[in-house]
Amino acid sequence: MGNTKKLNPVEAAKRFINKRFPSCQGAVLAGSVVRGEETDTSDLDIVVFEKSITSSYRESLIDFGWPIEIFVHNSTSYKQFFEMDYKDAKPSMQRMLLEGIILKDEGIIDSIKEEAKEMLEKGPERWTEQIITTKRYFITDALDDFIGCNNRAEEIFIANTLAELVQEFVLRTNGRWIGSSKWVIRALKHYDVKFTEEYVEAFDTFYKTGEKRKIIQLSEKVLEPYGGRLFEGFSLGKDNL
Score class of each variant (00 low, 15 high):
R136T: 04
F81R: 05
R172Q: 13
I102P: 09
E197V: 10
L98N: 06
L171G: 06
E198R: 06
Y86W: 13
L143S: 08
S111D: 15
W183C: 09
S181N: 14
L143C: 07
I139W: 05
G175W: 01
F195I: 07
I185D: 09
A159D: 09
L165M: 04
R186E: 14
G107C: 02
Q94K: 01
G107N: 06
R186Y: 12
S77V: 07
H190C: 00
S92E: 15
G179F: 04
S92L: 05
Y199K: 04
I102W: 03
F71M: 08
E121F: 09
I131N: 10
N174V: 03
N150M: 13
F81L: 12
V166T: 11
V193M: 09
G179S: 04
D145V: 01
D145Q: 12
N151K: 07
R95A: 06
K113F: 13
L103D: 08
W183G: 03
E83S: 10
I102E: 10
F195W: 02
V170D: 02
S111R: 01
T140I: 01
Q130L: 12
L120Q: 02
Y199A: 00
D144W: 01
T196I: 06
C149E: 07
R95E: 10
D141N: 09
Y78R: 05
N74L: 01
D144E: 15
Q167C: 14
H73W: 10
S77A: 06
K117M: 14
I178D: 05
R152C: 10
I108E: 06
N160G: 15
I70F: 06
E83T: 11
R136A: 01
F195E: 10
I147N: 07
V166D: 14
G179C: 04
R172M: 10
P124N: 08
K122D: 11
E99K: 07
F157C: 05
D110V: 12
K189W: 10
R186A: 12
